[in-house]
């Protein structure tokens, strides 16, 4: 009883319940619930997946299958700032690889990695649809375009 009460005090837990209740009765609730949960927790911790499994009556193995299939879902926490480097075709032909190289050198991490101080996570993505501004990166969904390697340091400095 008491532990149940304590759990409910956690505001994230309350938000998760709300998300589950919102989608529980619709057809195909799993992906919207996982997306909502990730929004709340920043990633999908094991205990959250177990909870979703129970609440939606979907086997944990199936949930794990879905989580690992889609690029959006992550099982490990990310840094405070998420950098998506676009390597779509337009960015590729306009020198996107040089931007990746510069970022990797600057942050000393590679694709998928997080800096030790948890300030940045780096992810290479296929296309964020801002091809007109290639090459681009987006940091926390904020797009920075027409980049040259020299502009990277200044942009990174804006994010704590």
């Amino acid at each position: 009883m008491c532990t149940a009460c304590e759990e409910l005090v956690d505001p994230k837990q309350i938000q998760l319940e709300e998300i589950i209740n919102k989608h529980k009765h619709q057809n195909g609730p799993l992906i919207p619930v996982l997306q909502g949960a990730q929004e709340v927790y920043g990633y999908l911790p094991a205990h959250v997946l177990k909870h979703i499994s129970k609440a939606l009556r979907i086997p944990l193995a199936r949930i794990y299958g879905v989580v690992t299939f889609y690029a959006q879902f992550r099982l490990t926490p990310v840094g405070r700032n998420l950098i998506n480097i676009c390597l779509g075709t337009a960015c590729h032909v306009r020198g996107g690889a040089k931007i990746v190289e510069t970022l990797e050198k600057e942050l000393k991490i590679s694709d998928g990695g997080t800096t030790e101080d948890r300030r940045f996570t780096l992810e290479v993505v296929a296309c964020i649809g801002a091809c007109g501004l290639a090459p681009v990166i987006s940091i926390n969904n904020e797009v920075h375009g027409r980049l040259v390697p020299e502009s990277i340091a200044g942009i990174l400095a804006k994010y704590e």
Binding site: A90, C127, G129, A130
Partner: peptide, 8 residues
């Protein structure tokens, strides 16, 4: 689900 890189 416009996934083609280079199309927007």
């Amino acid at each position: 689900d416009e996934g083609d890189p280079g199309a927007f």
